[in-house]
């Protein structure tokens, strides 16, 4: 079997059925574009939520008048906890200075407070994978029971809302990605299937003349791959336009969008996905060839 002949057959057929194929290319481009936008959104939300652990800490307020030995004991106990990354002791004097400096011009608020009302504090940073509402709640209950601890404080509301937001976007995103990929696959499948039905008699003639299965299949695979690849490139073009002309313009007014990251070195993934979906669609559409 000559490869160049298969390619020629495939391209002749693509030109002959140009309208069906153009429609398929556009649909695939739209599907891949939408999927890519979803992936990028999820990717960016993920980036932002991944920054949270660096800022997130649990504050353990200690009772008054603890001996240094007692504080060391508490620190050691907490350190044993596997989810704890590190502990920082903030003496109440430091906390007091900090508070004062942060209130610079409004120091009068503190007037009348001759004594430092702040407690000694242990600032705990947790390991990344322990920063979710359940795990934090569990550890804070545990901390509360340690002798010498008066109170636990962390951004409970903040943590749980960020957490469920990112979880929600990930779930919706993943669902959309699956639906869109299935849709794109289906478009490739039905396009090749239509072409295949249309050429039923032609294919039968090829079989009667002694063509092997691969001789028959190959042009259809090339067609599917080409349609998928074209769809992928068109989708990429759409994505670039969307990024450079829309997002960056909007970003100059709404700074949130300007931090949106677009991994350019991953852009080959769009045509590559189109190619793979096209080939898979064709393989499914051709199915088993029988003699």
């Amino acid at each position: 079997m000559s490869m160049s002949y298969s390619f020629r057959l495939a391209f002749q057929s693509i030109i002959r059925d140009k309208w069906v194929n153009l429609l398929a290319v556009l649909t695939i481009a739209a599907g891949l574009l939408f999927t890519a936008v979803t992936v990028l959104t999820v990717f960016n939300v993920n980036l932002i939520t991944r920054e949270i652990p660096k800022k997130f800490s649990v504050n353990v307020y200690l009772k008054e008048n603890l001996q240094k030995q007692e504080i060391d004991n508490i620190t050691a106990t907490i350190k044993k906890e596997p989810s704890v990354e590190n502990i920082k002791f903030i003496p109440k004097e430091d906390a007091w200075k900090e508070l004062k400096s942060s209130l610079k011009n409004t120091e009068y608020i503190l007037e009348g407070l001759n004594e430092n009302p702040l407690p000694d504090t242990l600032e705990i940073k947790l390991k990344k994978d322990s920063i979710n509402p359940d795990a934090v709640k569990k550890i804070s209950t545990m901390l509360k029971q340690i002798k010498g601890v008066s109170e636990i404080e962390y951004g409970e509301k903040f943590l749980s809302s960020i957490y469920s937001l990112s979880l929600g976007i990930k779930t919706i995103g993943l669902t959309l990605i699956i639906i869109m990929s299935a849709g794109t696959l289906f478009v490739c499948y039905s396009t090749v299937k239509i072409l295949f039905y249309r050429k039923n008699r032609e294919i039968e003639t090829y079989k009667f003349l002694g063509a092997t299965k691969w001789f028959i299949r190959f042009p259809f695979l090339i067609e599917g791959a080409t349609i998928g690849l074209c769809g992928g490139f068109l989708g990429l073009l759409g994505l670039l336009i969307l990024y450079y002309f829309v997002l960056l313009k909007v970003g100059s007014t709404f700074p949130i969008f300007s931090s949106f990251v677009f991994p350019l070195n991953m852009s080959y993934l769009l045509p590559a996905t189109g190619f793979v979906l096209g080939v898979i669609g064709a393989v499914i559409a051709i199915g088993r060839i029988r003699y």
Partner: peptide, 18 residues
């Protein structure tokens, strides 16, 4: 089957031209 058919040249009653 393709091996068999490659030994045979067929003139179909309905031609089967493409």
């Amino acid at each position: 089957v393709p091996v068999l058919r490659k030994n045979i040249g067929i003139v179909f009653q309905d031609f089967r031209l493409l």
